[in-house]
């Protein structure tokens, strides 16, 4: 009785090893699933939250931002600092905009809170490593981004579908 079970266990073990080996052997002859990253680059989806950019209107030669401070209030980590002035024509314009990417968590609340189409995510720039921590504090010139005039880019990465509730502080 013990002998029979002994040999049956050996056979069952061998069989199940073969089952596992058949799976790995099958994939041994299939192509790779990985990409060789620095040489091969995958295009990221348009909605990808890779880098926050300030939209610059090159026709009017100014940023779209009017310094309404909604993004600043929506930010969970208070990493946005911005100031604005009221111009001679009565319209507010942003003068300084600073975003500290070392504390930014890319939650997207600032982009959603923006009602003036001034902030956007771009999916192309995803290699954001820097050598110095200070380089992560970006100002409006570093974040300047002109929307390319092509139909593909017309579809904004993330539309402003969310209402102003997104993170509005009391």
């Amino acid at each position: 009785m013990g002998i029979v079970r002994y040999f049956r266990n050996i056979l069952a073990g061998l069989w199940n090893l073969l089952v596992g080996l058949s799976v790995t052997t099958k994939y041994f002859f299939k192509g790779t699933t990985t990409q060789q990253y620095p040489e091969e680059r995958l295009p990221l989806p348009v909605r990808s939250r890779s880098m926050i950019k300030l939209i610059y209107d090159d026709e009017k030669d100014q940023f779209n931002c009017v310094a309404c401070l909604m993004c600043m209030k929506a930010c969970p980590n208070s990493c946005i600092k911005l100031e604005g002035v009221r111009q001679a024509d009565g319209k507010r314009r942003m003068t300084t905009f600073k975003l500290d990417f070392s504390t930014c968590i890319f939650c997207g609340y600032c982009v959603e809170a923006c009602g003036f189409d001034a902030l956007t995510f771009v999916s192309e720039e995803y290699e954001n490593s820097v050598y110095k921590r200070g380089s992560l504090l970006q100002d409006e010139q570093a974040m300047k981004w002109v929307r390319p005039h092509s139909p593909a880019a017309e579809a904004a990465p993330i539309e402003n579908t969310a209402p102003a509730t997104a993170g509005a502080q009391s």
Binding site: P45, R47, R49, I105, F106, C107, I158, A162, T165
Partner: peptide
Amino acid sequence: LDLFEMTCGQRLTYNYIRIGGVMID
């Protein structure tokens, strides 16, 4: 994760399910 990224733009920290609904269709 590709499906997630396609929908909400992130692969790990989604911030997708919001109070009262979801972030984006």
